[in-house]
Design a protein around this nucleic acid. Structure first.
Lengths: 217, 217
DNA sequence: CAAAGCCCGGCACATATGTTCTGTTCGGAA
DNA sequence: TTCCGAACAGAACATATGTGCCGGGCTTTG
């Protein structure tokens, strides 16, 4: 028990109780409880006891408080890191299938739905949007029917980035790794066992960069 | 303008300003601002003006307030639905590669990292854990090197579910659709163009159910 | 033009809420 | 025992914060 460096510092039962209550309250209300909310919620006899234990929790890196500010409690992870990362709202602009181009002006479209994602899922960049994949035309990009792809609007790409490319003469959008090679472009499937295709640079139009893919079951 | 059921109701510039400030403040502090915070943050002359516009925002379904409670503002989506879904903490328990079994007792392992995910990414079920995929042995499940898989601990599965199955005599974990067929089990790759494999039921051990996969670029 | 309604300013008020002070209780150390 | 610090009780205090009221400018409507 002693000298256990990596272990969480000891929390009294009351402190664990408070921590649980904080989580529950916040997830229910979207704002933190007041000291008296905690008092009644955890059956504690006095506000000073709550305050006392909150101070201990703050010392141990489980919460952060702003003095004099009501309900100013942030949940931390026990090592002083913020636990509740901010979320990013990503509009779902529609479906994508082989032969259907991506939306050209994502900003102007009315989203049919908005995804709430954390930065553990997608990096927070401006203009991100999502599309539902319909059909299996992108199986060579390891993307299946029903998956969701997150894209960042782009007109060009650096070599090696995964892009949504509109191939003009085929009238088709494809997701591939992008390698410009002089007058032509090599488009490499994500599945390393598959062969690349080559197109004239004129024939390829970068429409966006692939940022993430999601699949739920 | 009248009778437009689906459209968002008109928001004054000041109201949009307040809404933006709310988002910004909450994502920065993890707790909502007070009326006076909004006042100074949006350069509004009086608390009553803030209050007035908050009332309008509440009527229009963009926020919800609890009366008499300080900082009790929840963000809604304009149709009365909660916008800030609660997040789920999913521990990353390690890597997975061909030939490496899944952790048997996920609860007891110390996570090397914790993912913060919304319910738009994974359903909130107890015991979820994540693994980083190493190597391309799961390419037939449309899962690539570097992907993250989210699993739910399970000892059995319903037909058609995607499971992590330990195949004893091969000493290998595989992700496939699970179809029990009498004394044997059909394991169907997720890529519909690939053929299923068949194993004796005795030789297959369900270790978990695949809940989601994530890929970032 | 008057009446009505929307939006705003300024201010005082009530209360919601964090803080602090004084004690008390309980174990373990000296 | 005595001493001391951690944890707890209870209450008073100070301020942070939501609310109500009154009035004014502005537009709309008749």
């Amino acid at each position: 028990m002693a000298g256990d460096l990596s272990a969480k510092q000891h929390l009294s039962e009351k402190q664990q109780d408070i921590l649980r209550f904080l989580e529950e309250f916040i997830s229910e209300h979207d704002y933190p409880p007041s000291i008296r909310d905690i008092q009644t919620g955890c059956d504690i006899s006095s506000t000073s006891v709550v305050d006392y234990n909150l101070k201990r929790l703050e010392e141990k890196g489980y919460i952060r408080r702003d003095r004099e500010v009501s309900r100013a409690i942030e949940l931390l992870d026990g090592q002083g890191e913020r636990r509740r990362r901010s979320t990013v709202q990503v509009p779902v602009l529609g479906k994508i299938a082989a032969g259907i181009p991506l939306p050209v002006h994502p900003d102007q479209m009315a989203p049919e739905e908005v995804l709430d994602l954390t930065e553990d899922t997608v990096p927070n960049r401006p203009g991100l949007y999502a599309l539902r994949v319909q059909g299996m035309s992108m199986i060579d990009a390891l993307i299946n029917d029903g998956d969701t792809v997150i894209l960042e609007p782009r007109n060009s790409a650096d070599p090696g980035e995964v892009v949504a490319a509109w191939i003009k003469d085929r009238e088709e959008t494809t997701l591939k790794k992008y390698y410009p090679e002089g007058a032509r472009v090599r488009l490499q499937p994500m599945n390393a066992s598959m062969d690349p295709i080559y197109e004239d640079a004129d024939n390829v139009e970068v429409q966006g960069r692939l940022v993430a893919t999601l699949r739920s079951f």
